[in-house]
Design a protein around this nucleic acid. Structure first.
Lengths: 155, 155
DNA sequence: TATTGTTATACTCTATAACTATA
DNA sequence: TATAGTTATAGAGTATAACAATA
């Protein structure tokens, strides 16, 4: 309960407080840094870009920029860095010669798989403390919450 | 299901993907900007600081820095900005004349109360789509998850 | 005329280093 | 000698603007 709330927290108040701490820059950076530790060419900054590409599949840099919430100039520069690191490949676009398709290289897929295993392991330690039903509920609710929060004008 | 996962997502994989999107800088910035819109002297950058002070109660700037995951020089500068905006007050520390206690002013409390009502409203729209039991479960699990993620060496 | 990708540039946010004053 | 707070400076991360090439 918060010092200034003056009463029992409602579920949404408790969720809001938890979200507030979860969204701290520090929380995100530390988590991403630990997930990418020791992976050549990947760090807390470029991780969301590679992860976004892995999540959605092959796409142009402009599409990727939208996916990860960055300007296309930034997505382009990070894609170049990831390409130079051998984690991403550029291919000719089928129908638009201005654009190029971005895909994960085999190395990139291995890198993402490692970050996922690390995150899975991290979350499993947490989930082991809770009944299986709660884990599935949390997954469903958190996924829906993200969808809700990232949809403009959802409240 | 992710393009490269090759099978049904496990709960931890689904949670990890949701977390990835939730932690995007863009998600955080847009949410904080919408919560602080129109509030004099508060924006997406200073919001976590004022919110952290509200969450924990009166504290020194060094303690506040730890609370919100910033360097104490940054916390000090933001505290000064919030003080100048009339949202925060500095008081003499009881036993250490080097330090000073930070508290919310009445205006600061009103500002935080407004951001909380906005966030509550935003979350209520989401929670209305789910049974009450799920809301409480989400609150408990999300709170525990944040605790887990912010504890160094928890995996 | 609009859009893709890219580069140069500027801005925002945060950390590091150095200092003063007090413990 | 160590720590609180502050300030100056440097760095990381991102956006804006402008360009050439293609739609």
């Amino acid at each position: 309960m918060c010092p200034y709330s003056g009463g029992m927290d409602s579920p949404e108040r408790a969720i809001g407080d938890a979200l507030g701490q979860l969204l701290l820059r520090d929380t995100r950076h530390n988590l991403h840094a630990s997930l990418t530790a020791g992976i050549e060419g990947l760090d807390a900054t470029t991780y969301p870009v590679l992860s976004g590409l892995a999540r959605t599949g092959e796409m142009t840099s402009t599409e990727l920029a939208t996916q990860v919430g960055l300007d296309r100039s930034v997505a382009s520069r990070y894609a170049t860095a990831l390409e130079h690191a051998g984690l991403v490949e550029r291919h000719a676009h089928e129908r638009d010669s201005r654009a190029c398709m971005l895909t994960l290289s085999n190395t990139g897929r291995a890198a993402i798989e490692l970050t996922r295993q690390r995150l899975d392991q991290h979350l499993r330690v947490f989930l082991d403390l809770h009944p299986p039903l709660d884990a599935e509920r949390l997954a469903l609710l958190l996924t829906a919450l993200v969808e809700h929060l990232r949809t403009p004008g959802s409240s």
